[in-house]
């Protein structure tokens, strides 16, 4: 897809098996405005109703924060956004490995080189990284790394959870988009290539008509820096295009959690998230 205007409806419903007396929440559901992606409209509604406080966090994501103190047994969050995307672009620049060893190059990207909880350092992975990096230029090695991840993991949901680390997913041999992204980050960072986690939505492949409301998903992919930031979708094994809507970037999933909250009261009995995408042009 080269250019698109997409409407995204992201509906989350939480049902509790008892009364919740109070809850505090933060949403990171707002598509970013970038060089190639424009947020045209956004509406966020929560039920029970609550005043919403918004701010931009450290990573540049827009956060909607709210708290509810009326006793409730269900919580619904509806975020509807309208985004125009021309597809992410980058400049191909050839940088040698020596550049990646220089402090003045590395330091600005320090956070995207360090291991995190979901993207730990791992010796076996480092070996694979050094094999790749010894055979090719940084940008080719990075592309190889993405390919390697696609071959090392099978897409299967239910085998991993939100706190599964890249290495655990790798050992298990399968995972969802989040695990593909984490494993890519782990491998890229082991080679000294700055890499960051991206969350958002992707317009499903297939023969969808304009104006048709199709079921979509939250999605995750990565961006890595080899002279410029390159966006790759390791789950699909291809570059990110205008069908991808970027919401947030961070070191790993925990920096971009779409709905983060705590509450006091009965446990969550069920949770239902639906994402619908409508292509308007």
């Amino acid at each position: 897809m080269t250019a698109s205007r997409l409407q995204i409806d992201h509906v989350s419903c939480y049902n509790y098996s008892g009364v919740v007396h109070s809850s505090y929440n933060e949403l990171r559901l707002t598509p970013l405005s970038t060089m190639w992606q424009q947020l045209l409209d956004l509406r966020v509604e929560v039920s029970p109703r609550a005043p919403i406080f918004t701010y931009i966090d450290y990573w540049g994501s827009q956060v909607h924060a709210f708290d509810i103190h009326a006793p409730h047994e269900a919580l619904t969050v509806i975020a509807r956004s309208l985004v125009e995307s021309s597809g992410q672009r980058w400049e191909e620049r050839e940088l040698g490995w020596d550049a990646f060893a220089r402090d003045d190059v590395k330091d600005p990207f320090a956070e995207f080189l360090e291991p995190t909880g979901c993207v730990p350092a791992d010796e076996r992975l480092s070996e694979i990284g050094s094999t790749l990096s010894s055979a090719a230029s940084p940008s080719d090695a990075a592309a190889e790394a993405i390919k390697w991840v696609g071959e090392s993991l099978t897409y299967r949901s239910g085998t991993t959870g939100v706190h599964t680390s890249a290495i655990e997913a790798w050992d298990g041999g399968s995972g969802v988009c989040q695990d593909f992204a984490h494993l890519s980050l782990a491998l890229l960072r082991s080679m000294g290539i700055p890499a960051r986690y991206c969350s958002g939505y992707v317009y499903p492949d297939g023969d969808n008509r304009l104006g048709e409301r199709v079921a979509g998903e939250s999605h995750a992919w990565v961006e890595y820096w080899v002279g410029d930031w390159i966006a790759m979708d390791p789950t699909a094994g291809r570059p990110v295009d205008a069908g991808h809507v970027l919401v947030a970037r961070g070191r790993d999933y925990s920096d971009v959690v779409p709905l983060k909250g705590i509450f006091h009261g009965g446990p969550t009995s069920s949770m239902d998230v639906e994402v619908f995408l409508t292509r308007l042009s």
């Binding site: 931009i56 966090d57 450290y58 330091d107 320090a110 360090e114």
Partner: peptide, 24 residues
Amino acid sequence: IFDDGVIPRSLVTSSEHFHRAAWG
């Protein structure tokens, strides 16, 4: 101070006491 190279950014970003939630 990072841009001017007086202290490395990584000094701060790797500190467990650097709370990004306090940014802003």
